[in-house]
Design a protein around this nucleic acid. Structure first.
Lengths: 163, 163
DNA sequence: CGTAATGCGGATATTGTATATCCATTAGGA
DNA sequence: TCCTAATGGATATACAATATCCGCATTACG
């Protein structure tokens, strides 16, 4: 069980977007170069973010992406689910109904106990991610990253910012 | 991100084994028929359980599997990780090191902040599964399953028990 | 205007993993 | 001795993740 590579990519992309000045945009090309990932494929992931309203894209030269709402209103769960989908990690196929000693077509009432337990763990995972906001990450990075690294990064980004 | 089908299968298999009388065994064939899943493939999953000491297989006719320790000492996490592996759901590839503005070969100290947050969610998931024992599941099933279903199941299993 | 850069969506190729099956071997009960 | 069982290796199949390519509509800028 493993999350897509795209999840890591868009989380870092969102972190970058969250540290940009208000209203500034970055192109897919810039984000891909910054993280060393394939531009075309990253583009797909960013489109997923745009479709659920986490980022907002604009066309033309000087186009690109920016956050569609304040970083404090974007959770890790929002981002992960935009790329990965909202499904459960445990898929119950109701194999308890297959027992040859059950009457054919048997359908029990209520969800499978095994599934209930697995889904509770899923909920705990989601709850943890829902509690983490993008702004908290940006703050943390601003506090812990060495100053020289931050200024070099800021300089590189400044040259790539559109609009 | 989805768990293997095998995870569902072995969880239900362990539930059955936990409800068997002390020392009784069930063959892969019986477990596969009971759940309506392919015997050969289920066998692989059960072998994974045997390798980490959750179940114990024996050869020959009247052979089969039984739990290797009390159901109260087996957690859902034990079973899931036996099949799925103990790896994290989020794999950090350190793309933060790829930034073209960083000095080449740059390696930051400490884990990536993004990864730390994702791993915390993984930990919450694992904690939840570690807290659920196989005996608790068996108790729950014994309490909630309709009596007629339980007796029919017990009868079917009795005919298949080895040793 | 026209040109180039951008996001967007569709189509497709490539790779890798989950799923599934088969077989040879070993071991044990009848 | 024969049958049945787990074990482990090899292999086939299906499907999803990864990656690339192309055509299109839009828009900034000269």
């Amino acid at each position: 069980m493993q999350l897509r590579n795209q999840v890591e990519w868009v989380l870092h992309c969102c972190a970058i977007l969250a540290m940009l000045p208000e209203g500034a945009r970055l192109s897919t090309r810039a984000l891909a170069e910054f993280h060393g990932v394939p531009k075309e494929y990253l583009s797909k992931a960013l489109q997923s973010l745009a479709q659920v309203g986490i980022v907002e894209g604009s066309l033309g030269p000087a186009g690109g992406y920016r956050l569609a709402r304040p970083a404090s209103a974007i959770s890790f769960l929002d981002i992960v689910e935009a790329v990965e989908g909202g499904g459960r990690s445990f898929a119950c196929t109701e194999i308890r109904c297959n027992a040859p000693c059950h009457p054919p077509g048997f359908r029990p009432e209520g969800p499978c106990q095994v599934a209930r337990i697995m889904w509770r763990a899923d909920d705990a995972w989601r709850r943890e991610l829902a509690a983490q906001s993008l702004s908290a990450l940006a703050d943390q990075l601003g506090r812990e990253l060495p100053a020289d690294l931050q200024s070099r990064t800021a300089g590189w980004l400044k040259k790539r910012i559109s609009s």
